[in-house]
Structures are given as C-alpha cells and as structure tokens.
Simulated assay, not measured.
Amino acid sequence: MASMKSLSASIQVFSDDTNLDAYDGKTVWTRSPEQTYQVWQLELVGETPAGTGIYTIESTHYKGQCLEATTRDGTVTLKPRSPDKLSQRWVVDTGEEQSTIESKKFPALLITANGEDQAVTLREAAPNAPNQMWTLFDKM
C-alpha cells in the first residue's frame, strides 16, 4: 500500500459525485464540484500496522484548519491544526482508486456523506457503502 508524505487533492464521494467542502470554515459538507473550498492538504503523520497512511487533512482555503472528529456519530468539523490530537488523524489508503476515511480516534467510524449541501458525519462502517467511499483527485 502506497503512502505519500504530503499531497494536495479534492476528495469526492462515490454516491453522488459531490466533494468535501470547507464551506463556512467550521462544518465540513459535501457540495457540488463547482463550489470553491474543496482542496485539501493531506499530511502523512503515521502508518497503520498494515502500512496504510494516517493523515491530517487541512483546508487549503482556511489555512491551519483541519478535519476533526469531535464526537462519535457527530459532524466532522474544522478545528485549528494540532497533529498530535488523535481526533485530527485519519486513515486513508491513497494508493487505492477509492478509499474510506476512517477516524483514528474512533476506529471503525468513517466519514460519511449525507447528500449534497449536507454536513458529513462519522458513522459505523457499512460494507461497500457508496456514501463512505472517497476518491482523491486534482481539481482543475
């Protein structure tokens, strides 16, 4: 499994082709790819025993703000970067065409899309759930 030290990418959900969006600088939504705050900086901070990368995911628009899992089954928010916080660490297989984004703080809970213009939440992993499968890509 390939892990990259750092990469800049947009992150699109398989279920409805919407992208993770920093939206208001507080809550993370899935929004139409035509929207703007959708480029993220993934910084490698560790690896699982199987070799999958553990990353912080920072907004490139709201510099210094990273995805954070604050509660089980809650919304994913943006908080000031603090790579030592488990709540800001995410397991992502960047070597796969599609990957889940799993919380390191809450194992087996995945970032889950809830439809266009809706906040993303942490939910229990569901086998092959299209709203839990994400693709990293370069946004033009």
Rank of each mutant, 00 (worst) to 15 (best):
E47W: 13
V39N: 08
E47A: 14
M133R: 14
L78T: 06
D16M: 13
V13A: 06
S6T: 15
T36Q: 11
M140C: 13
S10A: 04
A129W: 06
I111M: 00
A119T: 12
G51T: 02
P33V: 00
H61L: 11
T135M: 07
D24Y: 06
L7G: 08
L67I: 07
A129Y: 05
S15C: 15
T27P: 00
C66E: 02
A119I: 12
T77P: 01
T77I: 02
K26D: 13
E58Y: 07
C66Q: 07
K63I: 12
D17Q: 09
G64W: 06
V45W: 07
T75L: 07
K79L: 06
L44D: 11
Q35H: 08
L42C: 12
V13H: 01
S8R: 15
L78P: 02
S10R: 04
Q41D: 14
K104W: 10
D16S: 14
S99V: 00
A22C: 06
A22S: 06
A69F: 01
T135V: 07
D21R: 04
T112Q: 02
I54W: 00
K105D: 09
V120Y: 07
S82H: 02
T48L: 05
G115C: 11
S3A: 15
N114W: 14
G64R: 05
A2N: 13
W40C: 03
G74F: 05
T112G: 02
M133W: 11
R123P: 04
E116V: 13
Q35K: 11
N131V: 08
T18S: 09
S59Q: 00
E58C: 09
E97W: 08
A119S: 10
L136Q: 05
E58A: 10
T71P: 05
W90L: 03
S10L: 04
T94D: 12
L67W: 06
A9K: 09
Y37K: 10
E58S: 09
V76P: 00
P49D: 08
S82M: 04
T60H: 10
V45A: 02
W40I: 09
Q88T: 03
L20N: 02
W90V: 00
A125I: 08
V45S: 05
K139H: 05
S6I: 15
V28N: 00
S59E: 03
V13T: 01
G25S: 07
Q98M: 10
E124A: 10
T70L: 09
L44E: 14
D16E: 15
Q88S: 03
K26I: 13
Y37N: 09
A126H: 09
T94Y: 11
A113L: 11
V120K: 01
Q38A: 00
S103G: 00
T52C: 06
A113I: 10
L67Q: 07
Q118D: 14
K105Q: 09
G53F: 03
E102N: 05
I57L: 07
T121H: 03
S99L: 03
M133C: 13
S103P: 00
